[in-house]
């Protein structure tokens, strides 16, 4: 097991190397540049700016320079937000996005599994039908509709929760509820459907028939014999779900005015703020590959049939 973990960790190095290299060159291929948008900049000023950021050098040279900086954890200056470095910008925004994403995913997983279990055990009864209708809504209605609808109902009409804002404001943790619900909804829906299907399948399995034939009560059959096997597919879904939820958070952050990294991300892409884009890509990727790695290790702990070599 320890060997497997070390090997997986080492394999993160080439993965990250490829991500960094590909992104670096792909970004440069896109038309436009960081200063081309600013109309009226005299030719000479543009030249000076490029020189200041070493962008007049050959591309490969720039790449090597950038790579060296990244190795010591320096993502360089932002070309647009001139008063802050990329490190600072990410340090401000990223934690907020992670808080939002983690809360949303935890919510989606917990509620999704509970509803999935309920649906499966009450198959084809009203509980099942209503849960699965809710799930269809969650999967088919986009975030930018769900968010404003929740704002309308719970903030404007019922006045239970703030319309927008973030946890460090006076409204505190309350501000987290609506955006987290919005972001969680589609994932909740998917996880509910996934766990329902998976539980129904396990309920029909031979080993559950064996468990029943031994005289175990239905409660023990479900808890001991059904749930573990049925919920494993959810664990492997969590890796990709995290990727999706982080991307989704860009939309939710702008609906609820959350100072996360999503908004800067979109802006930086539009502005061709090369160092900022790269910094964000690297931090996101590192986060995602780490999550996938953790999920794999967790899966290995849960499924005894998997032997790590």
């Amino acid at each position: 097991m320890a060997k497997y973990i070390i090997r997986r960790l080492l394999s993160l190095i080439p993965t990250m190397f490829i991500i960094i290299t590909l992104s670096f060159f792909l970004i440069r291929v896109a038309p436009g540049g960081p200063f081309s948008g600013e109309k009226g900049l005299p030719e000479q000023v543009q030249q000076n700016l490029l020189k200041k950021y070493h962008m007049d050098e050959p591309l490969f040279r720039q790449y090597l320079r950038y790579f060296g900086d990244v190795l010591i954890g320096n993502f360089g200056p932002s070309l647009r937000y001139k008063e802050s470095s990329v490190n600072e910008l990410i340090a401000q925004g990223f934690p907020n996005s992670i808080i939002l994403g983690t809360v949303a995913l935890a919510l989606a997983t917990f509620a999704g599994i509970c509803v999935g279990i309920l649906s499966a055990l009450k198959q084809n009864r009203w509980q099942d039908y209503s849960a699965m209708s809710l799930a269809v809504i969650g999967i088919s209605v986009p975030l930018f509709v769900i968010g404003p609808v929740l704002q309308l109902v719970f903030a404007m009409n019922l006045k239970w929760l703030p319309v927008s804002g973030w946890i460090f404001s006076r409204a505190g943790l309350k501000t987290l509820i609506l955006p987290a619900l919005t972001l969680a909804f589609p994932y909740f829906a998917y996880i509910a459907r996934l766990s329902r299907a998976s539980i129904l399948e396990v309920l029909r399995s031979d080993y559950v028939r064996t468990a029943r034939s031994k005289g175990l009560s239905e409660g023990i059959v479900i808890r001991r014999h059904v749930l573990k096997g049925a919920l494993l597919p959810i664990v492997s879904y969590l890796g990709p779900a995290f990727a999706g939820i982080i991307t989704g958070s860009i939309v939710v952050e702008s609906i609820f005015f959350i100072p996360g990294i999503g908004k800067i991300f979109v802006q930086s892409a539009l502005n061709r703020d090369y160092p900022l884009i790269m910094g964000e890509v690297i931090v996101y990727s590192l986060f995602l590959v780490t999550m996938n790695f953790l999920v794999d290790v967790l899966y290995g702990f849960l499924d005894p049939r998997i032997a790590y070599k």
Partner: peptide, 8 residues
């Protein structure tokens, strides 16, 4: 398939 693969 008749023994539970997740339990000892």
């Amino acid at each position: 398939t008749c023994l539970n693969p997740f339990l000892r």
